[in-house]
Design a binder for these strands. Structure first.
Length: 565
RNA sequence: CGGGAUGUAGCGCAGCUUGGUAGCGCACCUCGCUUGGGACGAGGGGGUCGCAGGUUCAAAUCCUGUCAUCCCGACCA
């Protein structure tokens, strides 16, 4: 490719509307251009990167036995009604009507389509297992698209769906996919960690997310992990062993105490001269318009996804002060589960189980009850957020936390879709059974963005060689110098013949401009043809570590091959 | 949807307080000069000042509404 012909315009400054470094660099280096919020055109350089990632995915998926298909992007409401998700998916599902008034939606995912696809094709246990995948555009009308390609509304995804006649076979395929994913990301130059996670809107029981761990702030997930045994989980799923020794409040008897102006746990702890973990706090939430009171140890935070799972809700928010007064007839800060309105569902977090002689609100302004003990220990459930330093549930070593970018996930769906959609096969014994299913996603565009988040410096992108748009850029310093230009052209042609992907920066620009652009665009290797060609030498430079050597033009091909192998 | 900010040329910004010819840098075009880390000189093209109302002799500037974008919280590959 000739740089002078490449459809690209680099910017001297970062765009103002970008926050994440991958977003800034992709725009500035001329890889993407925004059309509207969350929708980007992939310019030629970007398209090459995405093609490379897609090809790696294809190779590995095919090797694992999966088969590629391509399903429609616009889908009929009817199948979503059948699965039950038309009603629950919410505003994220972009809905539209065709000219006859039929309801349809833009594909955010394809469980419904793939499940209905089996009709008339998959009918016998003898045909199982099957794993179908596609690489396709998805559209999710996200509440808040941001960070460029890290979370667009329109994005490219590889999604795979498997069909099985037994849980054991699903377990086997799940393992195969897990290994395949690790390999795919490795080949893309990314180290990932498979973490346990909540299964969210897709549904199912077992699921893992593949995280690229970052220390930058844009990772949108907190990942808790154990350095000793390797346990790792998304914060919405992580658990820890409770420290039971410090939860005795030490009060000798139960008593109502005047505690004026103690609206927060900190204020109350200070006032009573106790630790926050001796208080059982009351967190009032509204889940799907119904009141829920969560009792949780004072030093712990509510984890919202866990709560939604615990009460089988779809949407939660914290109650307003006004709602608290309405439901409790009491000022915020003094609530408890005692003598409350029966409409309110009370959830006890696991942390409440081991508490003794603790403090709770009195449901009366300016009063708390100290030295309280449960007469009967209530049924508890885990709805609290793990904190760094708490003990690993597997080996009891302290847990660490880091940010992660989710680039892929795998779910065991079971019969969540096949059952309601009545997608069945005939088993050995002649009976009809719903398929046992799994699904497996990779955010192709997100992989590219994550690679940049991970690999960049002050000068620009540093692509892993496997997914770089081109391997090498050849830079003649002075295009009007015949020897330089001819040498550069010659190298360019020879590299191409060797199957090395190369750009010739033939623009009549000063060297500085070309160097800056080469660094910004992130090509792994740069061959500079300058004055030293008069002594028969060109410069070979590695983007990643800045290593630079002078070699004869004839050695360039071998040197490139050596580096790229 | 709640809280904060911003909309002026492809990009980055000034001008607005105190209404009066729409500007600067980058990018783009022409010519000259230059050629190892975003040179320089001269000339040039490009903007319904987000949109709609209102106030005024006159609005980028003041007022009202609206839309969009970005950031912080509830979503997810």
């Amino acid at each position: 490719m000739l740089m002078s012909k490449l459809f690209v315009q680099t910017l001297r400054e970062f765009p103002n509307d970008a926050e994440a470094i991958s977003h800034k660099l992709l725009v500035r280096a001329g890889y993407i251009k925004k059309l509207m919020t969350g929708s980007y055109t992939y310019l030629p350089l970007m398209q090459r990167v995405l093609t490379k990632i897609s090809n790696i995915i294809r190779e590995e998926m095919n090797a694992s036995g999966a088969q590629e298909v391509l399903m429609p992007f616009v889908q009929p409401a009817s199948i979503w009604e059948k699965s039950g998700r038309w009603a629950v998916y919410g505003k994220e599902l972009a809905r539209l009507k065709d000219r006859s008034g039929n309801e349809m939606c833009l594909a955010p995912t394809h469980e419904e389509v793939v499940t209905s696809l089996t009709e008339g094709i998959l009918s016998s246990y003898r045909q199982l297992p099957v794993n179908l995948y596609q690489i396709q555009t998805k559209f999710r009308d996200e509440i808040r698209p941001r960070f460029g390609l890290l979370r667009g509304r329109e994005f490219t995804m590889k999604d795979a769906y498997s069909f099985h006649s037994s849980q054991e076979d699903l377990d086997r395929e799940y393992e195969v996919m897990s290994k395949t994913y690790t390999k795919i990301f490795e080949r893309c130059g990314l180290e990932t960690r498979a973490v346990q996670s909540d299964s969210g809107a897709i549904g199912g029981k077992v699921s893992h997310e593949f995280m690229v761990l970052t220390d930058t702030a844009v990772g949108e997930n907190d990942v808790f992990y154990c350095g000793k045994c390797g346990y790792s989980a998304n914060s919405n799923h992580a658990i820890s062993i409770l420290n039971e020794t410090e939860t005795d409040g030490g009060f000798s008897s139960q008593e109502k105490v005047y505690t004026p102006d103690t609206r927060t746990i900190e204020q109350l702890a200070e006032f009573l001269n106790i630790k926050p973990n001796n208080i059982l706090k009351s967190v009032f939430c509204i889940v799907d318009d119904k009141p829920v009171l969560v009792m949780i140890r004072g030093d712990k935070e509510l984890e919202e996804t866990k709560l939604l799972n615990a009460v089988q809700g779809l949407e939660m928010r914290y109650g307003t002060d006004e709602e608290i007064r309405q439901y409790f007839n009491c000022e915020p800060g003094f609530l408890s589960f005692l003598n409350i309105n029966k409409e309110i569902k009370v959830i006890y977090d696991d942390t409440s189980k081991t508490m003794k002689n603790f403090v709770i609100g009195a449901n009366e302004k300016d009063y708390h009850i100290v030295g309280y003990n449960f007469k009967e220990t209530p049924e508890t459930v885990d709805v609290s957020l793990v904190k760094e330093g708490e003990k690993c549930p597997v080996c009891k070593a302290p847990l660490h936390v880091t940010r992660g970018i989710e680039v892929g996930n795998i779910f065991q769906l079971g019969t969540k879709y096949s059952k309601p959609m009545n997608a069945c096969y005939t088993d050995e014994d002649g009976s009809l059974k719903p398929f046992i299913m799994g699904c497996y996603g990779i955010g192709v565009t997100r992989v590219a963005a994550a690679a940049i988040e991970k690999y960049h410096d002050d000068f620009g992108i540093i692509w892993p060689k496997e997914i770089a748009p081109y391997h090498v850029v050849v830079v003649p310093v002075n295009v009007s110098d015949e020897l330089q230009m001819n040498t550069a052209k010659d190298l360019y042609e020879k590299l191409q013949k060797e199957g090395i992907e190369v750009v010739l920066d033939d623009r009549d620009e000063r060297a500085g401009v070309k160097f800056k652009d080469a660094d910004l665009m992130g090509f792994p290797l740069r061959i500079t043809v300058g004055k030293t060609i008069n002594e028969g030498l060109v410069e070979f430079k590695v983007r990643k570590n800045g290593e630079m050597i002078k070699i004869a033009p004839d050695d360039v091909i071998n040197k490139c091959k050596e580096y790229l192998k």
